[in-house]
Amino acid sequence: MKNEIIRIEHVSFDYGDHRVLENINLTVYEEDFLGIIGPNGGGKSTLLKIILGLLNPTEGTISLFDKNPKEGRKYVGYVPQYTLVDRNFPINVEQVILSGRIGHTDFLRRYSGEDKKIADKAMKIMGIGDLSNIQIGKLSGGQLQRVLIARALATEPKLLLLDEPTSNIDVQAETDFYDFLHGLSEKMAIILVTHDTGAISSHVKTIGCINKTLHYHGEKNIPPKVFEKLYGCPIELIGHGIPHRVLKEHED
């Protein structure tokens, strides 16, 4: 029996009087690797923030690891959109990754030897061990992305949420990145958000399509009609000119 880790029921969300999400129902299980696609402004990031308890739904209910999101989120590693990071901030790679441990520290908020070991391990997994003293402004986009993922891994999550992790990464790096996530998905559930439909669907197990409402959720052979509805254009025009990958299996 697969365990449920997220249950979203009839969730709607308004920013002021602007409805961003409408009647979302979604269940995620512990071994899922779910890709969420949808156009810019479709509400994908908002949905992640609701899952994380950063925003409260206007209507509906959500549970995360059978708890309310503010409690359940201690099992979640969050990788925000890295374009939103302040690159001028005086902080180095190691400090960023250690900050993933802050929820585990004592009253004085000092990191223990154990915390440092976990952060080191996360850096090794992401292949950035030799960057630990570099200020984040000096990193490339791909490196910064790895730092943010390492920070999320340092929380020792059971579920990883990634918001648009591949924007600004070149195609080769993107393919490597998906292979890497594939390996990671053996160990934890993953939800990956993107507006780019090009490569994602050959790598994830299931797909959800969001544009205010959840248009589709299930196996990744998305009916072309859903695409037309989502993006307002026929499927051939979507992605990086490689729309066939959307419908094809991962070759391995």
């Binding site: 923030k49 950063l54 989120r73 902080i91 960023v96 900050s99 993933g100 908020r109 000092r110 990191y111």
Partner: peptide, 22 residues
């Protein structure tokens, strides 16, 4: 001095630090 690491995490990325229950 006492809250240095917390202030650092909070100032760098408020949203992430909220998720880690700062």
């Amino acid at each position: 001095f006492i809250r240095y690491n917390e202030f650092l995490a909070f100032s760098f990325d408020e949203e992430f630090s909220e998720v880690t229950n700062v």
